[in-house]
Amino acid sequence: MDIGLTVGDDLDRLAAASERFDFYELGIGEPTLVPGDIDTDRLDRALADRDLLVHLPYSQPLTSYAPEVNDAIVAYQRRLLDAAGTLGAEKAVLHATSADRDDVGFRDVATEQLQRVADAGRAAGVEVVVENVGHQHKGIQLSILGEIADETDTPVCFDVGHAYMEGGNKAIKRFLRGHGDQISHLHCHDVRRRGDTHIPVGAGEVDYGVVEAELSGFDGTVAIEVFTDDEALLADSAERVAERLGAEF
């Protein structure tokens, strides 16, 4: 199991990050960090021989009602995935969002779009991992995400805090029990129901004992997604997660 750190779309933050992590997850895409504009020498220096994962644009929807727009969405993600492959990225995180998540018929559109983007990733040599954002207005619900990820053979990026915000610790347990074998990548942080999110592990209400029980021996990648630059807090979160999953940091 490899433990890494999310660094947003900030190359300076990446360069300043602790070298204890195995990889860094970097946000790419317009308007902030366009892959074609990245200084590859600067990126290589910042990575310092660590692995690279990328996060595709956070606010880019996966689907729309118009076929022409859906084609454009796939074309955009393909361009980013091709660039990510050139940069040497191993995985790319994709938010699972839909133009209308409550329209039952729209599920087929979301499935087709996910298949097309995942295939684009395979062609680029990058594993697309689809992330649960069902707590958001347009995020596809956990129950549906597991189904369409299975149908398209797309690995999952399971965000523990997002799942808690969607349905509490019961939702975490339910998804891990039903779809744990589909998870390739984890986003780990803590949250509180009152709205605090992406806080250090152990500071919130997520029961990481559930994660331990369902994912013990996990052999994928784990990104610490705590919104702070405090090295001690980031390291403590990484150590807590590693201990729960039977690994070392």
Results as ranks from 00 to 15, higher is better:
70 N>L: 13
219 D>Y: 04
165 M>V: 00
91 K>D: 03
175 F>M: 11
168 G>T: 09
24 Y>G: 00
138 K>D: 12
71 D>S: 03
127 E>A: 13
182 Q>W: 00
247 A>N: 11
15 A>L: 12
37 D>A: 15
189 H>K: 11
50 R>K: 13
174 R>P: 05
215 L>C: 00
17 A>T: 08
142 L>G: 03
131 E>F: 13
99 A>Y: 13
58 Y>I: 14
200 P>C: 05
48 A>Q: 10
146 G>K: 02
172 I>N: 15
186 L>E: 11
149 A>M: 07
160 V>W: 10
212 E>T: 04
72 A>C: 04
123 A>Q: 08
88 G>W: 00
34 V>E: 14
232 A>P: 00
60 Q>V: 06
104 V>W: 05
202 G>W: 04
20 R>M: 01
168 G>K: 06
233 L>W: 07
3 I>W: 00
203 A>D: 10
175 F>H: 13
128 V>S: 07
21 F>N: 00
62 L>P: 08
61 P>S: 14
201 V>C: 05
55 H>Y: 05
99 A>C: 14
192 R>V: 06
22 D>I: 06
25 E>L: 03
129 V>H: 02
13 R>L: 15
38 I>A: 07
172 I>V: 15
129 V>Y: 06
84 A>S: 12
137 H>I: 08
233 L>H: 04
245 L>Y: 06
98 S>R: 07
239 E>G: 01
173 K>S: 12
19 E>T: 11
109 V>H: 08
172 I>K: 07
20 R>E: 14
230 D>S: 10
16 A>K: 13
40 T>H: 11
172 I>T: 10
232 A>W: 00
72 A>W: 08
168 G>Y: 09
236 D>H: 04
169 N>F: 10
202 G>L: 05
161 G>C: 14
57 P>L: 03
67 P>K: 08
210 V>E: 05
175 F>R: 07
159 D>E: 14
150 D>F: 01
132 N>E: 06
32 T>K: 14
46 A>W: 03
122 R>S: 01
105 G>C: 12
38 I>V: 14
163 A>K: 07
43 L>Q: 01
78 R>D: 13
65 Y>M: 12
8 G>H: 03
191 V>C: 10
244 R>N: 08
211 V>S: 11
226 V>A: 02
92 A>I: 09
47 L>Y: 02
102 D>H: 10
39 D>S: 12
173 K>V: 05
163 A>G: 09
148 I>K: 00
156 V>F: 01
19 E>V: 07
114 L>G: 10
230 D>R: 06
167 G>R: 03
23 F>W: 00
176 L>T: 08
82 D>E: 15
102 D>F: 09
34 V>F: 04
52 L>I: 07
25 E>G: 02
223 A>K: 08
78 R>Y: 06
136 Q>K: 07
41 D>E: 15
108 D>Y: 09
40 T>V: 15
151 E>A: 15
240 R>N: 07
97 T>F: 05
20 R>I: 07
53 L>W: 02
238 A>E: 07
179 H>Y: 14
175 F>P: 06
70 N>C: 15
37 D>I: 06
178 G>A: 03
133 V>H: 02
176 L>G: 01
189 H>Q: 14
169 N>V: 06
143 S>N: 13
231 E>V: 14
57 P>M: 06
3 I>H: 00
108 D>N: 13
56 L>V: 14
61 P>G: 11
